[in-house]
Design a protein around this nucleic acid. Structure first.
Length: 427
RNA sequence: GUGGACGUAGCUCAGGUGGUAGAGCGCAGGAUUGUGAUUCCUGUGGUCGUGGGUUCGAGCCCCAUCGUCCACCCCA
């Protein structure tokens, strides 16, 4: 084993057997995003390190210790992207897309140098959406409803929505003062990491899991009570919309998110079925980020979902999902083997939707039928000496006992056309 | 970065106190010389993660190292 070259720690292969679950997620996500009017954008996976430092925040864990950074040959400091929002904002500014409202989505690998565990990888995939140029709470709501629809269409139940508002920068500054005063008085009861955060990023102390710290901050002041009229209304409107849509949620005043750029709305979708890494999708509003990165002041909201985590949930809900061919072409004997490729191509010409596997490698009828069955195909097409002599093709169903029939080419095409009703890539 | 568990066949795993490796599944073939999925039979399969050490002898004991998993931290 150790003599073989292995995949890098935390960077996993996604094997064919789980691919149907990935396609299930990707197909549904793309369909829903497209139908809501979101346009896809693809950005490089490498950016200037500075981009992430300025957007995510210098004192966040991601920037402090999780980035894959290196120096380019010309001396530039580059990093593999640890998340998608920064790149997306950069691209939007660079191409002048902020001049009009934009609904965008992206998909791709992200990189963070953390210790791997269940649901957490060093290379992992996200689907994200970002909306630029709209301040209204309706767009925050739209994003949440969109994700809720995705879970529904994926067949996922049991995801919990948690919601909070971080207010605007001024409200947060006032709250921060109150909080620092509160925490400083209890400094001795905080764990060392929280004591450090008290200096660097006091809001993050709120979501510390450390039991003693939690006890010490049990009656800490609430950010929601520091919200001004506008923020309060913004939050209330979202809550009304969720109620109206019949989507249950929980207010979590401890929810502050790990990245610095959020304001007002933040939300997470959480599962209990994946162990310690329960957050499957998270997002929020970041009205200051575009300006902070050099664009003209533009409000923005977005979310990102972790594809590995969702795929695991999808597999849990429907373990048997697999790709199935429509037909598997069996050919025994020299003449039949020679005839099978032209036959397969004629069928593909006649039926572009046909998913047909042509047997290769010879073998007896028995062994070819075994392969046909393993492939998951609905039926076997049979080409042997007797079929060749009569200029017919045998068709045997592999999924029921409807027996075997002989068709000429045109009748076979008509028969297969009827079989094509369903999607070959689903169960 | 910290802690714990674990690395034996392609996969899932057995292998009391050290005596030169087993099962199921898979794969190949046969029972059924033109037919799968069921059943029965046969066969195929492993430098026991790697490197050292102790011993007459190590899958088992000791040390180191690499890797995997789970949790902490943090996050999608």
């Amino acid at each position: 084993m150790s003599k073989h070259i292995q995949a890098i720690r935390g960077m996993h292969d996604i094997l064919p057997e789980v691919m149907p679950h990935w396609h299930h997620l990707e197909d549904n996500a793309r369909r829903i995003l497209t139908n809501y009017g979101y346009a896809e954008i693809r950005t490089p996976i490498v950016e200037m390190s500075e981009l992430f430092k300025r957007s995510i925040g210098e004192v966040t864990d991601i920037v402090e210790k999780e980035m894959y950074s290196f120096e380019d040959r010309n001396g530039d400091q580059l990093s593999l992207r640890p998340e998608g929002t920064a790149s997306c904002v950069r691209a939007v500014i660079e191409h002048g897309l902020v001049m009009q409202t934009q609904r965008l989505w992206y998909r791709g690998p992200m990189f963070r140098h953390e210790r791997p565990q269940r649901g957490r990888y060093r290379q992992f995939n996200q689907i994200g959406a970002e909306v630029f140029g709209l301040t209204g709470p309706d767009i925050d709501l739209e994003l949440i409803l969109l994700t809720a629809r995705l879970w529904q269409d994926l067949g996922l139940n049991g995801l919990r929505l948690e919601l909070n508002s971080l207010g605007d920068p001024e409200e947060r500054r006032r709250y921060r003062e109150d909080l620092v005063a509160f925490l400083s008085a209890r400094r001795a009861h905080l764990d060392p990491e929280s004591q450090r955060r008290l200096e660097t990023n006091p809001l993050r102390v709120l979501d510390a899991k450390h039991p003693e710290t939690q006890a010490a901050i049990a009656d800490a002041p609430s950010l929601l009570e520091h919200l001004g009229e506008t923020s309060r209304t913004h939050f209330a409107t979202i809550r009304q919309g969720l109620d109206q849509a019949g989507i249950a949620y929980r207010i979590n005043t401890r929810l502050v998110r790990g990245l610095d750029y959020y304001n007002r709305t933040v939300f997470e979708w959480i599962t209990e079925d994946l162990g310690a890494q329960g957050t499957v999708c998270a997002g929020g509003r970041y009205d200051g980020l575009v300006e902070q990165l050099g664009g003209r002041a533009t409000p923005a909201v977005g979310f990102a979902l972790g594809m590995e985590r969702l795929v695991e949930l999808i597999a849990l809900a429907e373990p048997t999902r697999r790709a199935r061919a429509h037909a598997y072409l069996v050919a025994v004997g020299e003449r039949a083997e020679a005839a099978s490729m032209p036959l397969a191509e004629r069928l593909r010409d006649a039926l572009p939707q046909l998913c047909l596997i042509r047997h290769s490698g010879g073998g007896s009828f028995k062994s070819q039928f075994k392969k046909a069955d393993k492939s998951g195909a609905r039926c076997a097409l049979i080409l042997g000496e007797s079929e060749l002599e009569q200029d017919l093709i045998g068709v045997k169903s592999l999924r029921d006992d409807s027996g075997q029939q002989q068709f000429d080419f045109d009748t076979l095409v008509a028969f297969l056309a009827r079989e094509l009703g369903g999607d070959p890539n689903q169960t």
